[in-house]
Design a protein around this nucleic acid. Structure first.
Length: 679
DNA sequence: TAATGGGGGTTTTTT
DNA sequence: ACCCCCATTA
């Protein structure tokens, strides 16, 4: 067992061994933030603090896994496994399950993800008949994002819309009506969305009795990535520490990338206003990246109008580092080829695939690369974008789990009923109506659904009635039945529908089997459903078929999902204006600056090798042969470029006549001609 | 009357 | 690639 503390520098050690007042650690990328946080937990345990009285809050699930994993690796004893922690949302969920009664929540409350929340918004919109009269009302996803931003920032809707959705700002009253109806509907249905988890946690923390219990549950609260907390999360933290000063916050305002969730680095900078007697320790020695990579990061930072020059000092030369590469490619296809070439080249040099990452601004940016990687049988895992739990079959089973505990969950009924052949939105609605009582309310007990079921059957096509009845029967809870047995019954009843609806049914049924096993140590199926919505397992389906090497895979990730991680080699793709920075973010100067910080985050993930790829031509898929020219990312300023070695990819097609091209290209000469004007 | 398939417009980032 | 709307069909 290695003693982490011996590896710490002086200031890291000071932070780790800090006493019993409020502490702020301002830590640039690669300065050993996680190591210090881990060492601090170890120190607290050594001081005799009980592990379950330490709360370690992180922002993303991956960070939670990373830090808690390192903490739990410190000691082999089961004792240490009890350190409390996770994302804000998952910790909130646990608190709400425990204190549901005081907060007026039903025991079997359901947790809906963003997609379900958007569906519910649409459902409410239809009920208010706001659907056809106002065709300029935003789409469900836009509305849900707007709702979330408003709630998380605590800013009035009118002001949020004036700033972020000015094109429909005149609808703010209508949308306000829609939102309050949405809130009411969630309560009626016994559902919480992600924002509700935080809202109710804050309510709990501010409650006189429960709040004291919650605040008293922890001796130490540690918060990672504090630059990305929003008003709501700050309120929770302040409430949790009302009677106790012992909080440690860690962050870097140069890496604030979540303003779309209402986060603001102000909360980190103004932390002394929220936590009394706050001590600040700054970590600025970078142990991660080579000097050449730090030069890129620092010149990026220097280009910012406000200049976020956290000068990063290299502790000692990083061995095996290469000059950062700026690679100009003719188009996306060539970019995919060059990235694949470079990944394999580094792999040959001994850099395992897991030590390499391809980073991009938006999830769909990796689409073409994924095709190329699959073609070359290079295994990869993608983070961000399409997720396992967003796969329809998983959501189907989770919806059935939610119904077993809470038959009022109209969103779940909509999903499950539409699995039946011949049932679409309208018929699903009519079936749900048969469940309602005189007050048009859905029943609290599943037995009432079963009682109404004979009437519902009449609405179904004759040939699906039997399997539909079996499904209803399977969802109904039985007394003294183990949750896993119940889950297995539901899965079995759902299987015929999965088989009928999906081509790759066997693989999907295996996923569902894993979900059933996850019910082995729970008391409630709705709890498991909520955990899965919050924890986002990664699909094995993301692997490209027969792997080149077992248990090694290239990491594909959005920059947001890669926050806090490091890799020997980082490949940043689509460094073209409009993609990175995203044109969606260019409406305001703040938007552009956040994109700049995002690029900075991407660059500072790299230890030894950094390659940035700029495709120059984008094909429009609608019209064959139609294309447009892209400018290199504005972040690649002349000053930044001096930190790179530049090269132009030679078209492989021109050299070898490679045959897997999708559309005929113009001669490479034209591309080269265009390129040459750029430098 | 309601499901389903085709065509056209739009697409950020995460819990 | 996805979502939304509309026309067609059962």
């Amino acid at each position: 067992m290695s003693d982490t503390r011996s590896d710490l520098n002086e200031r890291q050690r000071e932070a780790a061994r800090f006493g019993d007042t409020a502490l702020r650690i301002v830590a640039g990328p690669g300065t050993g933030k996680t190591t210090t946080l881990t060492a601090r937990v170890e120190f607290l345990l050594d001081q005799g603090v009980a592990p379950e009285r330490i709360l370690l809050l992180t922002f993303t699930r991956r960070a939670a896994r990373d830090i808690l994993g390192r903490v739990r690796a410190l000691r082999s004893s089961a004792h240490v496994q009890r350190v409390a922690g996770g994302t804000f949302h998952s910790v909130a969920h646990h608190a709400l399950r425990r204190h549901h009664a005081t907060l007026g929540l039903d025991e079997g409350f359901g947790v809906v993800d963003q997609g379900d929340a958007a569906d519910l918004v649409d459902l409410v919109r239809a009920d208010l008949s706001l659907v056809s009269g106002n065709r300029r009302l935003p789409k469900k996803n836009t509305l849900t994002a707007l709702y979330s931003r408003t709630v998380n920032s605590g800013v009035p809707l009118r002001d949020v819309m004036a700033e972020h959705t000015p094109w429909c700002a005149d609808h703010h009253e209508q949308i306000g009506t829609l939102f309050s109806a949405y809130v009411a509907r969630k309560r009626t249905l016994g559902l919480l969305d992600f924002d509700d988890l935080l809202l109710f946690w804050r309510a709990a923390v501010e409650d006189l009795t429960v709040g004291a219990t919650l605040a008293g549950s922890y001796d130490h609260v540690l918060v990672d990535e504090f630059q990305d907390v929003n008003r709501l999360q700050l309120d929770i933290l302040v409430g949790l520490r009302r009677y106790d000063p012992r909080i440690t916050i860690v962050g870097d305002d140069a890496q604030a990338i979540y303003s779309f969730r209402g986060a603001s680095p102000r909360f980190l900078l103004d932390a002394p206003n929220y936590f009394e007697n706050l001590t600040t320790i700054t970590l600025d020695v970078n142990y991660r990246s080579s000097g050449a990579i730090l030069a890129v990061a620092n010149s990026l930072a220097a280009d910012a109008p406000e200049g976020f020059c956290a000068v990063l000092r290299e502790d000692k030369p990083v061995l095996g580092a290469n000059a950062p590469q700026l690679v100009h490619c003719a188009d996306e296809r060539e970019q995919s080829e060059r990235v694949s070439d470079r990944v394999l080249e580094l792999y040959e040099q001994g850099v395992a695939l897991q030590r390499q990452a391809v980073l991009f601004r938006a999830a769909h940016h990796s689409a073409d690369l994924e095709i190329e990687l699959s073609r070359r049988r290079i295994p990869f895992v993608k983070y961000g974008g399409l997720r396992y739990l967003e796969a329809a079959h998983v959501k189907d089973l989770l919806a059935a789990f939610r119904l077993a505990d809470n038959p009022r969950d109209e969103v779940a009924w909509f999903r499950v009923l539409q699995l039946l052949p011949g049932v679409g939105p309208a018929k699903a609605r009519r079936i749900i109506d048969t469940f309602r009582d005189d007050a048009r309310t859905l029943p609290l007990q599943f037995a009432d659904v079963q009682q109404a079921w004979p009437d519902s059957l009449a609405l179904l096509p004759v040939d699906v009635r039997q399997i539909a009845s079996q499904l209803i029967d399977a969802m109904a809870p039985r007394v003294h039945e183990a949750p896993m047995t119940h889950a297995q019954r539901i899965r079995d009843a759902l299987a015929p529908f999965i088989l009928a609806s999906y081509e790759d049914a066997p693989a999907r049924l295996e996923d569902l089997g894993a979900l059933v096993l996850a019910c082995s140590d729970t008391t409630r199926l709705s709890d498991v459903a909520a955990e899965h919505v919050l924890e986002m397992p990664i699909s094995t389906g993301d692997f490209a078929g027969p792997p080149l090497v077992d248990e090694d895979w290239l990491v594909l990730s959005t920059v947001h999902s890669a926050k806090g991680l490091e890799f020997d080699a980082v490949h940043i793709i689509h460094a073209a204006d409009g993609n990175f920075p995203a044109d969606m973010a260019l409406g305001s100067p703040e938007g552009l600056e956040e994109e700049r910080r995002l690029f900075y985050v991407a660059v500072t993930r790299a230890r030894r090798n950094l390659s940035v790829y700029v495709p120059l031509r984008y094909h429009h898929h609608r019209v064959r042969d139609d294309h447009s020219w892209a400018q290199p990312s504005r972040f690649l300023s002349p000053a930044v470029r001096t930190a790179f070695e530049e090269s132009t990819a030679r078209s492989r097609k021109a050299v070898s006549g490679d045959l897997h091209d999708l559309a005929p290209l113009e001669g490479p000469e034209l591309v080269e001609g265009r390129l040459s004007k750029l430098w």
